[in-house]
């Protein structure tokens, strides 16, 4: 029984992590509070829905199962482009004003949500998950690990590895870290900070798209899909500390696991309260989260 709870916790953590990874970039590295992140997730989810519909309409039924393979890069690409447009048209005016960026992006989120409602209709739409993800792994009597959840965990790990290599092992990533650490110095050394900003934000958005794609496996999707996750995702980033990927991972694991445990012990609503109390209590001990960037600067 505990094994199942553990797996559930892991599964929730992985979803949280996937949602929070994009935020870890936009919030952690760029200090922009992107409240439209939830809507980028929604865009990713609807991209998956569209890919599915296209496969249904134009390709033979035998090919249908493979739509999901294409849906992941498609949702990344679409969310990436939306993020790029958002950065170039709005976010760049808001660097250094985190609270203002929060309000402005919330407005953007509102517009995007309404746009989705106008295009796809207010009711939720269902995405048929591919048949190779049906069923699950039987590890014990009565303990079934659904393939969908295992797939999401694998997807998160893949995203994490890809991001690790991008941020810490590529030229682009090095430029990105340089700009985030010392913008003026990076600019002096010939890094195009504007381009780096745009790329960074767009990648964060693209990962939100992947998260949206993964969420279609968990149930039907609607225009307000992202709002369920956005605050939890921000809590992950706050708990994990900004600037390092490992903090985000720890934050997501912490919230996901405790959430499952508390909900198992009490009930859904009390569980959430207990998690919140735990987070605030933890912040008493480490106000900057699990992993804090050391710096001598004030503020």
């Amino acid at each position: 029984m505990y094994l199942l709870q553990l797996f559930n916790g892991l599964s929730i953590s992985s979803i949280l992590l996937l949602v929070a990874l994009g935020l870890a970039i936009t919030f952690g590295l760029m200090k922009v509070i992107n409240m439209a992140h939830g809507e980028l997730i929604m865009i990713g989810a609807y991209s998956t829905y569209l890919t599915q519909n296209i496969f249904k309409a134009y390709l033979p039924a035998s090919m249908f199962d493979w739509y999901f393979v294409l849906a992941i890069p498609a949702s990344f690409a679409i969310a990436f482009v939306v993020g790029l447009i958002l950065e170039m048209s709005l976010i760049r005016f808001l660097y250094g004003r985190p609270l203002d960026s929060l309000l402005a992006t919330w407005g953007v989120g509102l517009v995007l949500q309404q746009l989705a409602r106008s295009i796809f209709g207010a009711p939720n739409v269902a995405v048929t998950s591919p048949s190779w993800l049906d069923g699950g792994l039987m590890i014990m009597d009565g303990t079934l690990l659904p393939y969908k959840r295992l797939f999401i965990i694998a997807l998160v790990i893949a995203c994490l590895v890809a991001m690790y290599f991008y941020i810490y092992r590529s030229h682009e990533g090095r430029r990105m870290r340089a700009v985030m650490q010392n913008r003026d110095m990076a600019a002096c050394l010939g890094v195009s900070t504007r381009r780096v900003d745009a790329m960074t934000f767009a990648i964060g958005s693209g990962i939100a798209g992947i998260a949206g794609c993964a969420l279609t496996l968990m149930g039907s999707i609607g225009p307000s899909l992202g709002t369920y996750y956005i605050v939890d995702a921000f809590m992950v980033v706050v708990l994990g500390g900004v600037g390092k990927l490992v903090g985000t991972v720890l934050g997501a694991m912490g919230i996901g696991m405790f959430n499952t445990l508390f909900e198992y012990w009490t009930n859904a609503s009390l569980g959430k309260v207990l998690v919140f109390v735990c987070i605030v209590a933890f912040l008493q001990w480490k106000p900057m989260g699990f992993v804090a960037m050391r710096s001598r600067s004030l503020d």
């Binding site: 005016f93 808001l94 407005g107 953007v108 517009v111 949500q113």
Partner: peptide
């Protein structure tokens, strides 16, 4: 519908 678009737009305009 228009109201939500309006409100979202207003947020952006006022803040920026």
């Amino acid at each position: 519908e228009g109201w939500l678009f309006f409100m979202g737009g207003l947020f952006v305009i006022v803040v920026v």
